[in-house]
Every structure is written in structure tokens, then in C-alpha cells.
């Protein structure tokens, strides 16, 4: 068997984050995504004002992701040395931004409907 086994990545991430945190993250991601799509289906449009507000918070989320990353990897803020590093920084920031934006958009959306 030469293929990369997704279970191996699961094992490694579980070792990295600890089982409870990993499951919690997975639940937040899945529940957040589900709630987001449910909201889209219900509203049948994107509320642009709400999206902009969510994006503002999203920027903070991206920054927070970078700070967390720096902390767990014992890094400073001057350590980027090449294109692969900028790619990773962009990726971490992007994931933080997108994740937070979707979550906040969804939260605001459902709150305004309650």
C-alpha cells in the first residue's frame, strides 16, 4: 500500500491537537458549514452588508490564526524566508479569515432571524 492513508493524517492531527480539541474543531467546522448553507437556502441571497461586517471580523480571525500558528510553532514574525513561507502564511491567514467570516456571517444571519 503506497497511497497516503487519510487515517494517518487523522492520527497525526489527533496527536497534535489532542482528541477532544480535534473533534470539537471538526464539529464546529461541520456545524458552521451546515448552518451557513441552511441560511443561504432560507434567505436565497447573500446579505452584502452583513457579509462586509463579517469580513471585518474575519480579518481579525486571520490574524488570530497567524498568532496561534506562531505560538504553537515557537516562531517569531520575521521568520519567513522564501515563497513557500509566504504561501503558508497566506494559507493560514486565508483559512482564519474565511472560517471566521463564514461563522460570523452565519451567526449574525441566524440571530437577526430569531
Amino acid at each position: 500500500m503506497k497511497e497516503l492513508d487519510p487515517l494517518v493524517f487523522w492520527a497525526v492531527f489527533q496527536e497534535m491537537l489532542g482528541a477532544p480539541l480535534l473533534w470539537l474543531m471538526l464539529v464546529v467546522i461541520l456545524a458552521g458549514t451546515a448552518a451557513f448553507f441552511a441560511l443561504l437556502l432560507k434567505e436565497r441571497r447573500i446579505d452584502s452588508r452583513r457579509l462586509v461586517r463579517a469580513e471585518f471580523v474575519g480579518v481579525a480571525g486571520g490574524c488570530l490564526a497567524l498568532v496561534l500558528m506562531a505560538k504553537v510553532s515557537s516562531s517569531g514574525f520575521t521568520d519567513a524566508g522564501g515563497p513557500a513561507d509566504w504561501f503558508l502564511i497566506a494559507l493560514v491567514f486565508g483559512l482564519g479569515l474565511a472560517g471566521t467570516t463564514i461563522l460570523i456571517y452565519t451567526l449574525l444571519g441566524w440571530r437577526s432571524r430569531v
Partner: peptide, 16 residues
């Protein structure tokens, strides 16, 4: 190349 990503692997991913 001296890279941060390689450092990240060493400090974060290798032990798990």
C-alpha cells in the same frame, strides 16, 4: 533554502 515552513514542520508536525 532556509525556510520557516521547514521550521514549522520540525517544531509542530514531527513529534505527533
Amino acid at each position: 533554502e532556509e525556510l520557516w515552513i521547514s521550521w514549522v514542520m520540525k517544531t509542530m508536525a514531527l513529534k505527533p
